Computed example of a mutant assay.
Amino acid sequence: MTATSMFDRLDADRPLKVVVAGAGAMGTAWARAVGANPRFELSAIVDADERRAKALAIRLRAPGLPVTASVADLAGVSVDICINATPPTEHFGVIDAALEADLAVLSEKPFTGNLKEAGLLAGKARALGKLLMVSQSRRYQPGLERFRAGVRRLGGLYSLHTSFSRLYPGTGFRARLAQPLLTDMAVHAFDAARYVTGAAPVEVYCDTVRRSGSGYEGPAEASAVFEMSDGLRFHYSGSWCAPGLPTPWGGRWRAVGTEGSVEWDGAGRVHGGGPDGEHADNDVETVDDATFDRDPVRQVARPLEEFGEALTTGSSPWGEASDNLRTVAMVEAAVISAQRRMPVRIDELLAEAWAT
């Protein structure tokens, strides 16, 4: 670990050796992204079902790749990095085991099941000098990055709005989550709000609804208003049980500031308008959001590259664990607010997490 880095750096003169934990759809995307990036080398696959791990190795045309049922079983396999692509309920155990094995960790969102667990892992990673990063893949969507550039031109921000609405069947692990929309989907929007505005979350009031027949055990519809630093209000509206007229996966966004407004339709079009209510044709930008939406390998390629850059240079990436705690705290505060039907202070939750 250098004097300026919170974690051990790795040698940039050789490929970084990776184990992918989780051989499902996202594990497959991560494994393919690793194989396409010369900075990395896929060294092993871990899955509780070793037959599934072996099947993935065969699909990757690497039938001799070591496969194990857990990260703890990797003795004798040279590995630098664990990519955690397991279901959210497994995140704490997999990340903890990887840190114990002296590995840097890049994890799929959400970080863990709750803020306390996330705080424990962030503290452990820091104590061990290991980089722990949470991949918020939609932070890298082309339209969101252009929207952020437009927001930067609005002067002082008044409000940020996003809406997400789709009919998404409640199946698999998501169907069993206590708060499926907030923890597995809204977390993207909450993290994006931090990225777009640079503001810190202060307080939230949230209301959730469980729709009968949705297939979800928990509520899959939510509305939340966050107070952010500098008085900014962030309004979130989302649903996984809304038939007809779906939004893009990135949602639709609008920001309002002292110098006008900017909108992103989530599907490739970003445009802004000045305080007089007009906007010129050259204020409209078109980006390729469609390819990003339908290509899971592209979605994870950028966070993977940023992770590798951080490991070899010592720079702190977006999603570094101690910073991602703020995103986790937004989710947990929203969940608590919905349960108690009252506002929840986010800084108090963060203080408790770090004290743990």
Rank of each mutant, 00 (worst) to 15 (best):
M133I: 09
G143T: 03
A104W: 10
A85R: 12
L154A: 04
L115A: 01
E145D: 07
T86D: 06
L160T: 05
G123H: 15
L99H: 01
G156V: 14
R166D: 08
S163K: 14
V134D: 03
A85F: 11
R148L: 03
L144F: 08
E145V: 13
G129T: 01
K116I: 15
H161R: 10
H161C: 10
L106V: 08
S163V: 13
F147K: 05
N114C: 02
L120E: 15
C82V: 08
L106W: 01
A97H: 09
A97N: 05
N114G: 10
M133F: 11
A72C: 11
G143E: 02
P87L: 14
K116L: 15
F92Q: 08
G113H: 03
A118Y: 08
R153V: 05
A85T: 15
V94K: 09
A85K: 12
T112R: 06
G119P: 04
S137E: 15
V134P: 02
E108Q: 11
L74H: 02
G155M: 07
V77D: 00
R146S: 07
L115V: 10
A125N: 03
A72R: 08
L128P: 06
V77M: 02
A101G: 08
S135L: 10
P110M: 06
A127I: 12
G150I: 00
L106G: 06
D73S: 14
A118T: 09
N84F: 01
L157I: 02
L103S: 01
Q136Y: 15
T112K: 10
R153D: 12
F164G: 02
L103I: 01
V94H: 02
L106C: 13
D102H: 00
G156I: 11
R146A: 09
L121F: 09
Q141I: 12
G156S: 12
S165K: 10
D96H: 14
R126V: 11
T162P: 02
I81C: 09
G123M: 11
G113P: 01
V105F: 05
F92N: 00
A97G: 08
N114S: 03
G123Q: 14
N114H: 02
G155P: 08
N114Y: 03
S159D: 10
